[in-house]
Design a binder for these strands. Structure first.
Length: 869
RNA sequence: GCCGGGAUGGCGGAAUUGGUAGACGCACGGGACUCAAAAUCCCGCGAUGGUGACAUCAUGGGGGUUCGAUUCCCCCUCCCGGCACCA
């Protein structure tokens, strides 16, 4: 055995050994419990970043742990390979996106392999592979047949930078999720997937996901936004010229008797009708359309409106109610029209005040009166009044009674509505999955026949930054209609890349299946037992994938309802930001790797200097690693300097996986130091006749000296703790801390005494096994030293020896009035009176009590005694 | 505005079901080894007072429940995340 730890060499050897045996290639074994462990696949952007390393290390630790526990583990990897960065790189460098993407995949694959992840590379897939995306197209056609996919023209979110449409989920604070550009409204035809058909199930099934973080489930529930209410029809006052009845949706039918006007969105048919004869109204509508480009601005912008001169009739009283066009009613929710109840709705209240519309209170608090005149809307539930025969009812009763009355008049019914909108999947971009349709002047939209799939995306186009290159490539779009044989045009829009990622985890189960989208292996492996990824996909990818799985289930392609049984959302990787203000007032950022942080004699931070010039730099706080702040650390450099195990150990140790992780060079050094100590400990043990002790005449545990018995107890307690931390808590940081603690104790064990060597052998073997999911390479090498001729990966996860966990004497804490005042050692089986007696007799306790009388003694068995004086 | 999560030494974090606050690591200080430095090893390390044994204070702030509260309850401050004219 080498005296020193040489990570590069041992890591290369370990990886070679795993590769030769193909040990991580998974097959379906019916009689073994399966464990499908999945980390979100990367976009092949060029090289791995620390977020990837963290993500895949978490997955690898869990995979390797489960493997040792006897599970049939599958951990696959692939590439989310379609997307805009490829096109942008192509525009800049003049290289086709395909080449750029495949080159990146090759490099990043080698990086992942150098990190030693236990991945089944036989199942690797890339979403830009025609053999993958043909099944996107195939399923899209099935959806088309079922009416789940359909075409419509509507106002959409337009990203002016990426020059494409975005789905609602992809608009964050009014900006594109990728570019951050302010989203515009445009009216464009496109294809939609009817995710709203599944709204109710997507919401209800969140309850089938106890293994998901509450936070993510809440976010999805809010996004789906189910609300119960009543659809109400307001008949037209034809005398005023009102052309049609107005349908509204309300959750507060109990306030119906307080309606004083009706408001419609600027895009509403009634508004457009009225505008035809009223130029000023037309101008107002136009200004609404232009002003309201940014979603976030909508909420804060001033409420504006204009009367149409049209009237509707109150469905119960027949009263004439004016119709207003306003900018605060959304066309995209409900019917694009609302009944306005100023007394009981904040928005209506503001608007009514501005435009001097009547305010009619009809709800009062259950125990009390409404103070009039109202200073603000009373929006809570309460009791009706001033509502004719619907007075003096609780809100819930009034809603029911009014709904029944409206039902009898055929002017309303109870209705459930969702905030969720259908998923627009058309993208006016090149590097994506072609939508398999043909437009024929004669036959309309014609789907491609299944046996003609895939519609292959040409891989040699170089976009120039102006529009979709597919639309400028006749060899792609020129075709003949499959129905009538005449000249036709192929659809040049491609699918949202979130389509690709909505089912890749199913395809891993059968990525070599040429004849079908899935086969029975999908039902063996799925659902994914543990999914790991960033919280940023809480809605987007995770909601789409759930929807897609349910569609596939209804098409009888898979048999599960939910794709991901357990979800772990990892925290982001942060690093300090350093900068200087240059003379011209510009800010120049410096990479933390080029900066030395200084400390004073008390260990507090005193400043930071740039190594290159020795001059100070300012700290800009801690932030996510990003190019713009120049605070990223390249994982490759860490791997080359310290080895993959150090990188993995540091990331798992610095914080629990769900929390943010602060990068620290010193912390990396510390992790490296620990591995060096571990290596040395095994080396020294072998020098002292080490592993022979385990095989020759063993000393019975009962004959161990007391200190070794205690140490052996700690060893087995550590096994229990690490197992629990990995299995249940997923707190790898505390698991590592417990092993470090044990190592610290172990380093005191000296000498060649057989029992000492025997214990050392037992401890080191177990430490190597416990650490192996986290730092597999060094453990692979150390195991060969501790047990020559055997392989670590053939070993099961260690089991604690129950006998070792039982201590004859235990330590009990003694408190006086809840404050720690002493410790006593006492026999494990000592009864309550004995414990009390021992506590009272203790010298320290006697002194602290100073003769005060005992009022009461609280005993927590095995833990503490509290003496109340 | 609504919903959720959080605040613990110089720093990252630990304390799992109300039971020893600060595990483990980093930084820092002291020592050993060395011509010297690095590396390594040993010791110390919340604050205040005390030579010391020890005492007091301390988990964002204030109050409460309890023999005992970082943990439970009420109020407040600040930070982070999500949603936001959703009728």
């Amino acid at each position: 055995m080498q005296e020193k730890y040489h990570p590069q060499e041992i890591e290369r050897q370990a990886r070679q050994s795993w590769q030769e045996t193909g040990i991580f290639n998974a097959t379906e074994i019916p009689d073994k419990p399966k464990y499908y462990c999945l980390s979100m696949f990367p976009y092949p952007s060029g090289k791995l970043h620390m977020g990837h390393v963290r993500n895949y290390t978490i997955g690898d630790v869990l995979s390797r742990y489960r493997r040792m526990q006897g599970y049939n583990v599958m951990q696959p990897m692939g590439w989310d390979a379609f997307g805009l960065p490829a096109e942008n790189a192509a525009i800049q460098k003049g290289v086709p996106p395909a080449k750029w993407t495949y080159d990146n995949i090759a490099y990043m694959r080698s990086q992942l392999q150098s990190l030693g992840f236990a991945i089944d590379w036989q199942r690797e897939l890339a979403t830009c592979d025609p053999q993958y995306y043909r099944w996107n197209q195939w399923l899209f056609l099935r959806m088309l047949e079922k009416g789940i996919a359909y075409q419509k023209t509507q106002v959409v979110n337009w990203d002016p930078v990426d020059q494409t449409v975005l789905a609602n989920e992809q608009v964050i604070d009014g900006c594109g999720w990728r570019t951050g550009a302010v989203v515009e409204k445009r009216e464009i035809p496109g294809y939609y997937l009817a995710i709203t058909r599944y709204a109710d199930e997507l919401l209800a099934d969140l309850e089938k996901l106890p293994g998901w973080p509450e936070r993510v489930k809440t976010m999805q529930a809010n996004w789906i936004g189910k609300s119960f209410g009543v659809d109400i029809t307001f008949p037209p006052d034809t005398a005023s010229g009102m052309p049609q009845a107005l349908k509204v949706f309300t959750t507060r039918a109990d306030t119906l008797m307080g309606v004083t006007y009706v408001a419609v969105a600027a895009e509403h048919a009634v508004a457009l009708h009225a505008a035809r004869s009223q130029p000023d109204l037309a101008a107002f509508i136009e200004s609404c359309r232009q002003g309201a480009t940014m979603e976030a601005e909508l909420a804060v912008q001033e409420k504006k409106g204009m009367a149409t001169g049209l009237y509707v009739l109150h469905p119960l009283t027949g009263e004439r109610l004016p119709v207003w066009v306003t900018n605060y009613v959304l066309m995209s929710y409900g019917e694009g029209a609302v009944m306005a109840v100023p007394a009981h709705d904040e928005r209506d209240f503001d608007f009514a005040r501005q435009h001097s519309l009547p305010i009619k209170p009809v709800i009062r608090p259950e125990n009390g009166e409404l103070s009039v005149p109202l200073i603000q809307a009373f929006t809570e539930y309460g009791v009706t009044f001033n509502s004719a025969r619907f007075s003096d009812l609780k809100s819930s009763e009034a809603i029911d009674a009014i709904a029944v009355e409206l039902g009898q008049k055929a002017l309303g019914e109870k209705r459930v509505r969702y905030r969720l909108r259908d998923w627009g999947v058309s993208r006016q971009r090149y590097w994506g999955c072609p939508i398999p349709l043909i437009h024929c002047d004669n036959c309309g939209v014609v789907p491609i026949a299944d046996d003609q799939l895939p519609v292959v995306l040409p891989e040699d186009l170089v976009p120039d930054g102006s529009g979709n290159p597919l639309a400028k490539t006749p060899s792609f779009y020129e075709c003949t209609c499959p129905c009538c044989g005449r000249q036709a045009r192929r659809e040049t829009d491609t699918m949202d890349t979130f389509v690709d990622s909505s089912w890749y985890f199913i395809r891993y189960a059968c990525s070599d299946q040429p004849a079908a989208m899935t086969d029975q292996r999908a039902n063996y492996w799925l659902p994914v037992n543990q999914y790991i990824g960033g919280i940023e996909h809480a809605i987007l990818h995770l909601l789409y994938s759930r929807f897609w799985s349910k569609v596939m289930r209804d098409l009888e392609l898979v048999s599960f309802d939910e794709p991901f049984a357990n979800l772990l959302t990892q925290g982001m990787v942060l690093n300090e930001i350093f900068f200087r203000k240059t003379g011209s007032g510009r800010i120049q950022y410096f990479n933390p790797a080029e900066v030395d942080v200084q400390h004073d004699a008390e260990g507090k931070r005193s400043g930071a200097i740039l190594r290159a010039d020795g001059q100070p730099v300012e700290s800009g706080g801690i932030g996510t690693m990003s190019k713009s702040k120049n605070n990223g650390i390249d994982p490759q450099e860490i791997i080359e300097q310290y080895g993959a195990d150090t990188a993995r150990l540091f990331m798992m140790f610095a914080s629990p996986p769900t929390q943010t992780l602060e990068w620290s060079d010193a912390g990396v050094e510390g992790a490296f130091r620990f591995l060096k100590r571990l290596w040395r400990q095994v080396y020294l043990h072998k020098q002292q006749g080490g592993e022979a002790a385990a095989t020759t005449t063993p000393v019975p545990y009962q004959e161990y000296p007391a200190d070794l018995r205690d140490l052996r107890c700690q060893l087995h307690q550590t096994i229990v703790k690490v197992t629990d931390d990995l299995e249940r808590r997923h707190t790898f940081n505390t698991a590592i801390a417990a092993i470090m603690e044990l190592m610290n104790e172990l380093s005191d064990v000296q000498g060649t005494h057989p029992a000492a060597r025997q214990l050392m052998q037992e401890a080191l073997e177990n430490i190597v096994l416990l650490l192996s999911p986290i730092v597999p390479h060094i453990c692979h090498a150390l195991w060969r030293e501790l047990r020559p001729g055997t392989e670590l990966l053939d070993q099961p996860w260690p089991q604690a020896d129950d006998q070792a966990l039982i201590q004859d004497e235990i330590e009990i804490v003694v408190q006086i009035n809840g404050k720690l005042r002493g410790q006593i050692r006492i026999a494990r089986e000592a009864d309550r009176p004995a414990v009390e007696r021992a506590a009272l007799e203790d010298e320290h306790i006697q002194k602290s009590m100073a003769g005060r009388p005992v009022k009461r003694i609280v005993v927590v068995p095995g833990k503490l005694v509290n003496i109340v004086v």
